[in-house]
Design a protein around this nucleic acid. Sequence first.
DNA 1: GGCTTTTAAATCATCATACAATAAAGTTGC
DNA 2: GCAACTTTATTGTATGATGATTTAAAAGCC
Lengths: 264, 264
Amino acid sequence: MESLERQEHGSSAQPARRPRVRRNVTASIAEDICSERYPSGSILPRENDLCAIYGVSRTVIRESLKVLESKGLVRGKPRIGTTVCDKDDWNILDQDVLEWMGPYIAQFDILGSILEARRTIEPAAAEYAAERATAQEIADLDNAWRQMRDSSDDPEGFTEADVTFHKVLLSASHNQVFRRLSSAMHAGLKYALHASNVAAHSRDEAIIVHGELVEALRLRNRTAARDCAHRMLDLAARDLAVERRLEDGRRIKPETSKSAAADR
Amino acid sequence: MESLERQEHGSSAQPARRPRVRRNVTASIAEDICSERYPSGSILPRENDLCAIYGVSRTVIRESLKVLESKGLVRGKPRIGTTVCDKDDWNILDQDVLEWMGPYIAQFDILGSILEARRTIEPAAAEYAAERATAQEIADLDNAWRQMRDSSDDPEGFTEADVTFHKVLLSASHNQVFRRLSSAMHAGLKYALHASNVAAHSRDEAIIVHGELVEALRLRNRTAARDCAHRMLDLAARDLAVERRLEDGRRIKPETSKSAAADR
DNA sequence: GGCTTTTAAATCATCATACAATAAAGTTGC
DNA sequence: GCAACTTTATTGTATGATGATTTAAAAGCC
């Protein structure tokens, strides 16, 4: 409202190319929701006002709102308006939603949930992968592992390789539910630990364990694979804990850990 | 259901009330995709033709397609048309998608994946629930359990109570990822075993185990809770296996278990 | 004749406007 | 003062036009 002007439509002078705006508008609105500019429970501006705010026609605004509605972020009722849903209703397993939450994800305290889920799921996935992984998948894992090893002093590349490793691992479980969850795990990995904060020796340990997991898959050793996955996630948990300590130190207010669930 | 002539648009004579059509149109298109009327890889009719087919304006068609696209069912490109995505790209964790797949879900061979996922996730969820469940949640579980017990000879009601039981259980884990997965588990429960096919003694066993789980949660006994969840899912797995045998017996052609993935 | 470039056509993407349906708020009648 | 009616604002849907983009045909060049 106050300082809006989101897109490049600034001065109405230039013809203002508008190819494929909808995706961007959807993301813009979603981001404004995630950033609490439109907090949960509030109703966002009328569609006509949204047209002015985002500089597009009502068609685009509507299509965007319908997409957001289909992912549980908002809920439109005739004559009333479009209200922002409670965060519990959001489809946080949806890849788009996770991307939109992106930087704000830390404020939704779902990183802990994601890590817990990973600790539950990835060992099982590793076990299934030990049974079912194809030679190609094992090769892909090996490649990802090599890339991790070769970029042990490049946090960016390391994280990227780590992400693909876990993506391929979940895929190699040949379980469609686990496969679909990889986007959530991805977000957990990507945003949980801003790569730079993870100590180098932590990366070294991770490389060792990841390598052992690949070897276990080659040998079709289910229990070893499960064990490696467990250890990998212990490392991740430790890093997240470190991260949290840093975070808590940065902002003064200490936060009781579990009281957030009762706020509704 | 199958042959219904999608809407009431048949003869153009009557005024044809059209409030809130979009949701229905979206579901109709989705169903036509799930039923393979528009198989994966094919491109569906032009938007203008879709207007005629479903008897609505292009606005509605577009909004519907955008929603479907946002859930990974289709993918539209300019000039090309809207192509049906491969099933691997579908958001099978999305509640709407699962509902649309509904009766056809058995053909997507994801029931096995869902059961596997449940066996992985629900024991962990039970363990967390033993720590974190509120008194209210335990009471809700108890209610669901009583309803299961009281409708032990009413397959419909039994399944319904079973579904809510597992929904509440996942919710009581206070893990947002698990909570979100309950829709998938729901579909797994609802369609995996057409209630009537499950033998009565199977239900009796289930009632016992569910009751023990509630008790374990009351006592905050994590290992007992996990154990009960395991046993519950062993029962479910057995029922699904029975179901599969029946299914395989019904249609003559015997099917090698894993070859279905290669049919596309 | 074969290859490259240009032009054209088809279809999606967006816009603008209009009408219908709906539910809140205001108004009138008693 | 309350109930029924009317007004009005906003979303839902319909319609047609324009712009953008890619496939494909047509034209030009060697």
